[in-house]
Nucleic acid binder design. Sequence first.
DNA 1: TTCAATGTTTAGAC
DNA 2: GGTCTAAACATTGA
Length: 288
Amino acid sequence: MPELPEVETVRSQLASEIVNKKIKDINIRMSKLIRSPLAQFKRVVAGSAVSTVERRAKILLIGLDSGYTILIHLKMTGQLVFKGKGRIKGGGHPIKDGTVGLPNKYSHIFFIFTDGTKLFFNDLRQFGYMRLVKNENLKEIFTNAKLGPEPLSGKFSYKQFEELLNNRKNSKIKPLLMDQTFIAGIGNIYAIETCFAAGVRPTRRVGSLTKSEKKKIYDNLIRILKLAVRKQGTSAKNFVDAYGEPGNYVPLLKIYGRRGQPCRQCRTTIKAIHLGGRGTTYCPKCQK
DNA sequence: TTCAATGTTTAGAC
DNA sequence: GGTCTAAACATTGA
């Protein structure tokens, strides 16, 4: 899926397009992706207007003027694509030709606004979901999810990071970075890139990290996430975003997906391992 | 052709 | 509860 920078990109693009638009109708072609009572979902959503578009972790929050919020998770392959009058905007996961001919075979749900514009929810692997929550219950939902701090909130200090690390000394650093209850929003790509930038092997136990290494992990994590947001996210493989262009962070990837290729820093062949069930690449020379 | 891979999360095992 | 595995699913590349 889109990780934090990709979801944040979708959020800001959508915010500029759909806030204050009224939803005339909603077309649900695959109801299993709606994780709320279907009748209620349709009844509340149709006729509501969008008041906010926000994000928590990798979850998009579309606030409605009816006192409800739609939670949307894109998981591995979800997309949200806005189709305005003549222009397409939005984003999410790369699907070849995903923006050609909407709705397409992956457009499982879509919203139709009163001005005739549309918002498509496409998902090749069908892992994503939408859920309708009363605003007064939102807090409880997030409390139960035990989501960690937002790394780009501005309140997430090195001191806090170090304290969190001290509670998980036995964890391997890379799977820990991806643990949403530890820090919210980091996925496979940015965890891998952060470890490389910090010069730390993904398999290192937190307890073995020096203070200098912890600081490098923190600094690079924040730096990379901010840069990726500015570049409107990463799209591996043959991604086309909703504008039909590849994600701008792709050329900046240093190690993700480069198994067997020479390290950009030292030319050593990049290794690949399985860690926590996820493909993980690292440079055996640059990362200690 | 077959197998392993893919940006995520969760339930269930120990 | 920390930590690990497998599963939800469709497609692609080796």
